[in-house]
Amino acid sequence: MLGKFIVIEGLEGAGKTTAIQTITRVLNQNKINQLVYTREPGGTPIAEILRDIIKNGVAGDPLTNKAELLIFYAARIQLIDNVIKPALSANKWVIGDRHDLSTQAYQGGGRKIDPHFMAMLRENVLDGFKPDLTLYMDITPELGLKRAKARGQLDRIEQESLDFFNRIRCQYLDLARQDSSIITIDASKSLEKVTKAIEDALNTWLNSNGIN
């Protein structure tokens, strides 16, 4: 069985960690046990250094929007070439905590970076590489940020305005409507209902691919 790349997306506080646990359980139930977990930004020594810059910034040197975008892609291609593609080639399944859809939503929607520039960059860096399945955990910014604040101190991006996160959510929803490989999950419901929705979506997708 060839490896597959499944990604979880969503705003802060959407429940991505719980979703990953649910996906792992469903895959294990289908005798898929060779799993590799990634997170973005990060996942390699270089990418983790870049993650720290994105999350915390550098004192006295404000990070510009385009520089932030380029750092994300630098970290992403390190992860793809050094971790994800080798794992898939070894018939392992990769479960990713965020991928390129985050950049399209956060930098494209939130930062309002020129879409033509972003499309050019994405095409040249990723060369068509994308997840087999993306589960987008949809939640309002108000609820998501409330959950994120309960976890502890917010990072540089989490401290952005509510309008910033509303633009991100709108972009997520718009992109999900355009791509059949993206399944939207209502993450505002109870844990039990969200878990069931993830299980149903994943089992349906596995069945459609002749896996379960």
Rank of each mutant, 00 (worst) to 15 (best):
A74E: 01
I77F: 00
D61G: 04
L154W: 08
S89T: 15
E123Q: 15
L133T: 14
A75D: 02
A87L: 11
K130Y: 00
P41Y: 10
T64G: 14
K66G: 02
G144A: 04
A59E: 10
F117C: 04
M137F: 09
A74M: 09
P62M: 10
Q107M: 07
Q78C: 12
N124S: 12
T134D: 08
R76N: 11
I84F: 10
R122I: 02
H99C: 09
P45I: 11
L154I: 05
Q34M: 08
V36S: 07
K92S: 12
G108E: 06
A148V: 03
L145N: 11
L88W: 10
A47G: 11
T64C: 09
A148N: 09
S89V: 14
D61F: 12
T140E: 14
A67Q: 10
I95E: 03
A148M: 03
Q107S: 01
E40W: 10
Y37R: 01
P41Q: 06
L145R: 13
N124A: 07
I53L: 15
E142R: 11
D114Y: 03
R147Q: 04
D97F: 02
V36Y: 11
T38N: 01
L69Y: 03
L88F: 06
L135N: 02
K149V: 02
T64W: 05
M120V: 03
Y136H: 08
Q104D: 13
V58H: 02
A67M: 14
A75C: 10
A75N: 09
N56Y: 12
G43D: 13
E48N: 11
A150W: 00
L154R: 02
L133E: 05
D127F: 06
Y106P: 02
G43E: 12
T134E: 09
Y73W: 04
T103I: 13
T44E: 05
G57Y: 07
K55A: 08
T103N: 13
D97H: 09
V83Q: 08
P41T: 12
L133S: 12
Q104T: 12
G60D: 00
N82I: 04
L35E: 01
D138E: 13
